[in-house]
Design a protein around this nucleic acid. Structure first.
Ligand SMILES: [Zn+2]
Length: 211
DNA sequence: CATGCCGGGCC
DNA sequence: GGCCCGGCATG
């Protein structure tokens, strides 16, 4: 049974890893997840991606849960759908075998790649992580315990996910990122440079059009 | 080719 | 800090 999984991962890195808009590979992470699992009714040729929009939503109870091990990066556009602490990913997989070598993952819409790592997405609510520290170490932490940060996160994203055009584009895997991203330069034109935002004028990352 | 922007420079 | 630009990545 092939599944298309759209996930919004509430990402929280362990102390020392910091936070980044790009999740660093091999970094350990715990997360609260918000996931929608769809059963696709189309052909099971995974290289086509989940282009079939006829989807039936399944409950998380249908999915086995394990621990987590996170990887790569994210479409910057997709980040707009979530909080700064969220990550989004798309997984197209055979849920009967989460370690299958046939498993594909798309970290950019439509960009399907072979997944070689063991996939351990926890699709069920996680218990709060514990600040990692040596056993029998009774010295006080020099940082707030990780649980504090984790518990401060809402369990649901505050931003809408479904029924947005971007979400549908991400799900259908038909989205040209380049097209939709308009920054100051392209919007105002090269001769109206004075109306660009400052960062664009300095050839830095645009701050007016965040995406 | 155009766009976006990082790194690194200068003041 | 403000400001500028070479050069690279990407489409
Ligand atoms: Zn700008």
């Amino acid at each position: 049974m092939k599944m298309f999984i759209q996930t919004a991962l509430r990402y929280s890195a362990f102390p020392g890893n910091g936070r980044s808009s790009k999740c660093v590979s091999n970094s350990r992470a715990s997360m609260k997840t918000r996931s929608k699992v769809y059963e696709t009714s189309g052909p099971t040729n995974p290289t086509d991606g989940p282009n079939d929009s006829r989807k039936r939503q399944l409950s998380n109870a249908d999915i086995a849960s394990t621990e987590s091990h996170i990887t790569p990066m994210l479409d910057k556009d997709a980040l707009r759908l979530f909080d700064g602490t969220d990550l989004a990913g798309e997984i197209f997989c055979d849920v009967t075998d989460f370690t299958s070598p046939n498993l594909l993952a798309a970290w950019q819409p439509g960009d399907w790649n072979q997944w070689n790592e063991p996939l351990n997405f926890d699709l069920s609510p996680l218990s709060p992580p514990v600040t990692p520290r040596p056993q029998n170490d009774t010295r006080p932490l020099d940082i707030p315990p990780f649980e504090t940060f984790y518990n401060s996160l809402p369990s649901e994203s505050t931003l809408p996910l479904e029924n947005t055009q971007l979400f549908e584009e991400l799900i259908s895997g038909k989205r040209s990122k380049r097209e939709m991203s308009k920054k100051c330069r392209k919007v105002y034109g090269i001769d109206n440079k004075k109306s660009w935002c400052t960062q664009c004028r300095w050839k830095k990352a645009c701050t007016r059009f965040n995406s």
